[in-house]
Each structure stands twice: as structure tokens, then as C-alpha cells.
């Protein structure tokens, strides 16, 4: 009896967004009297970081500090329309809508600043720190706060913008099945190293090495988090998640989600990930979606590593000890 080591590789191309009936998201932005900007969305941040990334995109486009952008999310009764956070679409769709809204608001902001400074709006730049000034003359400038005050109390203007990103519906060509299903594709590759116990059929994932090409990584720390969390879910799909018992005794099977088997802190693998940036042509600042793809390549990589370790090729998930032991029996010519 032995613990057999193996290594497997798998790669994934993953679509960003979908367009089954047209795929829109909208954003509205306005400045408060204090020169903060509020972005109203119907999108939900459930931990993936759309609020953080949305505020980054708005701050970059407006030319104001990140801290002066507030994101007001997730009231689908009152907010502008969003299809939702799925299909790895959030950063791309909502990000594009925010960027468009921020561009419109920036135009008004620069116009008010130009009137206040008695210069041409085309000569003005933002310093990203809360001031607007004449290009090349930092002293001839005005704080964004004062621009907001002037807009509200002198000019009777709202520094606001509307953003809409729509991926139009793509009809399927009946003859070929051809269509345009997404906006861009992200790519990834995982190398998994596993150990298979040929007596118990138990698999331990020892290490996963990942490379991700996700356009522009808007927030590398958040992207890295998605990779690690997604790889964990990949391990979970590959080895654990089933309503069948982990060992073939019905009493060991899950009765509800609290007993549904997923890897715990003791089952995680050493993780080494790199991000490669090749900006997309249509994402905000070149971003693509990373959300769902992170659980993809780990699964076939683990299956391939198991094959490399013990010669058993399992083609259905999860790869439970029972499947491995049956496979080993078949390889040895033992009847099941």
C-alpha cells in the first residue's frame, strides 16, 4: 500500500458576460455638496468586491481620490437596472456603466470649474487628490469641494452622469449555431499536485500553481483572493461535493447543507498564483471577468493529477474514494 504522487495540468478559456436577451447594466452618479460622488447601482456586493472596484473605476475616471467615492448598491426597487452579479460580468458590465456615468459627471465638473476659474475647460486637469487646475499651472486651481459648492449654490447645476452598458442580444444562426455569446475571454492554467492513498482511495491536494490572464487586474489583492477562494471551491467540486456518502454507507451521507461535504481549513493546498495582464479592448480600463472561472481549471487539473498518480481516469465529479478504489480494482483485474 502506498501514497502515490501525481501532477496534472488544465487550462480554461472563460467568457465574460452573456447576452441571451441583451445584457444591460446601468449606473447613476452625482456629486454631493461636499464634493463626494455617490454612485447608485442595483448590483450586489456579496464579497467579490464590486463596490471597491466600482469606486476605483469612478475615481480614476473622475480624477478624484478613491475615498471621495461612495457606492450605494442593491436596491432593485429604486436603483438603475442591473441584470445581476453572475456570468463573471460585474466588473465588465457595471464597471463600463460606471465609467460612462463618471465621464459625463466629469464634463459637468470641469465646466463648472472652468467658469469659476474663468478659463477654458479644455485647459483644465484633475490632480487625483481633490483639486482641478490649469494644465501646467498647479497654482491656478480650485478644490473639487468648491466646484461642488459652486454648482449647487451659484450655478444651479447637478454634477451628475448617466451610464449604461448594453451587450446587445445576439441571434443564433440556425444553420451553424453561431452566435456572439460574450464580450471577451479570460484565460487560466492550473497545475495540481496530489497524493492518492491506494488503500483508502483518499486524495490530498498538495499544491496548486495558477496563472491567470484577466485583462487588467483592477485590484490585484482582490483578484488574488478570487483565485484562492475559487481554487478552494474547485477542490471542493473535484473531490467532495455530492449528496452521496463520501464512503459508500448511506448513514455517512449528508442530510442537509450543514453536513454537505466541502473542504475545511485542514484540506486546503499550498497555493502559488500569478496574474498576467493583457487588457481587453472593451472592458473598463481593459478588465475582464475573473469571478466564476477560478473554480474551473482546478477540477480537470486534479483529475489529471490523480490519473498521473495512480492510473485511474475518473470522468465524473466528485472523484470520491469509492471511484478511485473501483478504478484501481479494475486496473488490477479484480472483479468489483
Amino acid at each position: 500500500m502506498a501514497r502515490l504522487k501525481g501532477r496534472g495540468v488544465a487550462a480554461v478559456n472563460y467568457p465574460t458576460g452573456m447576452n441571451l436577451g441583451g445584457d444591460p447594466s446601468q449606473a447613476l452618479i452625482h456629486a454631493t455638496t461636499t464634493g463626494s460622488f455617490v454612485i447608485t447601482l442595483s448590483s450586489v456586493d456579496l464579497g467579490q468586491g464590486i463596490k471597491t472596484v466600482g469606486a476605483q473605476i469612478a475615481a480614476e475616471t473622475l480624477g478624484v481620490p478613491y475615498e471621495s467615492v461612495m457606492i450605494d448598491t442593491a436596491d432593485t426597487d429604486t436603483g438603475p437596472h442591473c441584470m445581476g452579479t453572475f456570468a463573471s460580468r460585474g466588473t465588465h458590465r457595471i464597471g463600463n456603466a460606471i465609467m460612462m456615468a463618471a465621464k459625463e459627471a466629469r464634463e459637468v465638473m470641469m465646466c463648472v470649474a472652468a467658469t469659476e476659474l474663468e478659463v477654458d475647460a479644455g485647459d483644465l486637469v484633475t490632480d487625483g487628490k481633490g483639486r482641478i487646475h490649469v494644465n501646467g499651472a498647479p497654482d491656478k486651481g480650485i478644490a473639487v469641494l468648491d466646484v461642488a459648492l459652486a454648482a449647487h449654490f451659484k450655478h444651479g447645476k447637478t454634477i451628475s452622469g448617466r451610464g449604461m452598458y448594453l451587450k446587445p442580444k445576439s441571434e443564433v444562426v440556425p444553420e451553424t449555431g453561431e452566435m456572439d455569446p460574450d464580450s471577451c475571454q479570460a484565460h487560466a492554467c492550473t497545475i495540481a499536485e496530489v497524493e492518492v492513498d491506494d488503500e483508502t482511495g483518499d486524495v490530498t491536494v498538495l499544491k496548486m500553481t495558477n496563472a491567470y490572464e484577466i485583462g487588467r487586474a483592477m485590484n490585484p489583492a482582490l483578484a488574488h483572493q478570487q483565485i484562492v477562494g475559487g481554487a478552494w471551491m474547485g477542490i471542493s467540486h473535484a473531490l467532495y461535493e455530492t449528496t452521496e456518502p463520501y464512503y459508500p454507507n448511506r448513514a455517512h451521507g449528508p442530510l442537509d447543507f450543514s453536513e454537505y461535504l466541502m473542504p475545511g481549513p485542514g484540506d486546503i493546498a499550498e497555493m502559488d498564483s500569478v496574474i498576467i495582464e493583457r487588457p481587453s479592448s472593451n472592458g473598463p480600463y481593459g478588465a475582464k471577468g475573473i469571478g466564476e472561472m477560478t473554480a474551473n481549471s482546478p477540477i480537470p487539473a486534479i483529475a489529471n493529477a490523480i490519473f498521473d498518480a495512480c492510473g485511474v481516469r475518473v470522468t465524473s465529479m466528485p472523484i470520491t474514494p469509492e471511484k478511485i478504489l473501483r478504478g484501481l480494482d479494475a486496473l488490477r483485474g479484480n472483479p468489483n
Binding site: V228, G229, G230, A231, W232, P265, I268
Partner: peptide, 8 residues
């Protein structure tokens, strides 16, 4: 249990 981070 954590369902997001992968524990690392």
C-alpha cells in the same frame, strides 16, 4: 466554516 476565502 468560510465559503469565500479558501481559508489561506
Amino acid at each position: 466554516i468560510c465559503r469565500c476565502t479558501g481559508y489561506e
